[in-house]
């Protein structure tokens, strides 16, 4: 029985296993130490592995007996969260490429559109019922520009941050 919970447990367990083996290879200290650099990470990752195995076993048993207890995500909401995450990734790349101001304008507009589709109440989930109106689209475009310029001015000139 494979589901998100089990996959997450296994991923954490695998990372922990890697951390444990990496900790064994930390170089020895040049000075006489009773506790070396690898002691604490080894203990922590070792404990983490034992506990994760317990969690994995408990989750697996629970899934078999009671089924998934975590509420299933509504497909539209799940897609919305994934789309916003993808937008964040693009946003970070864009900042590096075209600078903060342009990237923020693009991100805000796109995220407002995606959030509208994800969070709007509708009797059925047909895309035509969820698409933003022309008025919302224009307001979102205007808000993206105004908010970006205002925020940039406040943070750069008011709080002294560097936003390029």
């Amino acid at each position: 029985m494979i589901n998100g919970r089990i996959i997450f447990d296994v991923v954490i367990l695998a990372i922990t296993g890697w951390a444990f083996s990496a900790a064994q290879a930390f170089p020895e200290s040049f000075m006489q130490e009773h506790i070396t650099s690898s002691f604490f990470p080894s203990i922590v990752s070792g404990l983490l592995m034992v506990l994760m195995l317990n969690v994995l076993w408990t989750d697996f048993r629970e899934l078999r007996t009671h089924g998934e207890s975590v509420e299933k995500m509504d497909p539209r909401s799940a897609l919305g969260a994934l789309a916003v995450l993808a937008l964040l990734v693009i946003y970070i790349f864009l900042i590096e490429g075209i600078g903060f101001r342009l990237a923020t304008m693009v991100f805000l507009f796109a995220a407002m559109m995606v959030s509208h589709i994800t969070l709007t109440k509708a009797d059925d989930d047909q895309l035509k019922n969820l698409l933003p109106s022309k008025r919302y689209t224009l307001s979102a475009a205007l808000a993206s520009v105004v908010v970006t310029l205002l925020t940039h001015a406040v943070f750069v000139h008011g709080f002294g941050l560097s936003l390029y």
């Binding site: 964040l88 959030s115 994800t118 808000a143």
Partner: peptide, 10 residues
């Protein structure tokens, strides 16, 4: 929330 979400992320 559709306005708030993008702003928080920004």
């Amino acid at each position: 929330a559709k306005i708030l979400t993008p702003l928080i992320l920004m």
